[in-house]
Amino acid sequence: MTIRSLQQDLADFAAEREWERFHTAKNLAMALAGETGELLEIFQWLTPEESATVMSDPPKANRVREEMADVFAYLLRMADVLEIDLEQALLEKIAINGRKYPADRARGRADKYTQLGG
């Protein structure tokens, strides 16, 4: 299974329902934000310890899986609609972040790159 094959499955799913006209970049971005909010809601009031063990609670684990799948689906669909190669975009972003956060200066730190100093 590849990102492209998942995108095709989602495109086929939308086409079978004649939903393409609703899958604009704006609508998909809004849906992505909404689903991300639903994922955040699961963790909102958990302690750090509870959040680390959320997957050991079957009902919560199922909700986490479903919301993460929704987020992933909308992200894939939006990338497809905008013709963004997510694999290439991620590789480029990793390289950018590697320059912003050199391992020798960023290791073990959560500072923003502008605060790392030279």
Rank of each mutant, 00 (worst) to 15 (best):
T2G: 09
I3T: 14
I3N: 07
Q7W: 04
Q7F: 03
Q7T: 03
Q7R: 09
Q8A: 13
Q8V: 09
D9Q: 14
L10F: 09
L10W: 03
F13N: 04
A14E: 07
A14N: 13
A14Y: 05
A15W: 03
E16P: 00
E16I: 00
R17P: 00
E18D: 13
W19C: 06
W19Q: 10
W19R: 09
E20Q: 14
F22S: 03
F22N: 04
H23Y: 12
H23Q: 15
T24V: 07
T24R: 04
K26G: 01
L28E: 04
L28V: 01
M30S: 08
E35G: 02
E35W: 07
T36C: 11
T36V: 08
T36D: 00
E38A: 07
E38M: 05
L40K: 01
E41T: 01
E41A: 10
I42A: 02
Q44F: 02
L46A: 02
P48V: 10
E49S: 13
E50V: 01
S51C: 05
S51Q: 12
S51I: 00
A52C: 04
A52L: 13
V54G: 02
M55Y: 03
D57N: 13
D57P: 00
P58G: 02
P59K: 01
K60Y: 01
N62L: 14
R65C: 03
E66N: 09
E67Q: 11
D70R: 01
A73S: 12
Y74F: 15
L75E: 00
L75M: 12
L76T: 05
L76D: 03
R77H: 07
R77I: 00
M78D: 03
D80V: 00
L82D: 12
L82H: 05
E83A: 15
L86M: 15
E87S: 09
Q88F: 02
A89V: 08
A89C: 07
L90Q: 12
L90Y: 15
L91E: 15
L91A: 14
L91M: 13
E92I: 08
E92C: 11
E92T: 13
K93D: 06
I94E: 11
A95F: 06
G98D: 09
G98N: 12
R99E: 15
K100D: 07
K100N: 13
Y101F: 15
Y101W: 12
Y101S: 04
P102A: 10
D104I: 13
G108A: 09
G108W: 10
A110P: 02
A110R: 15
D111S: 12
D111G: 08
K112G: 09
T114Q: 14
T114N: 12
Q115K: 15
L116T: 06
G117K: 03
G118Q: 14
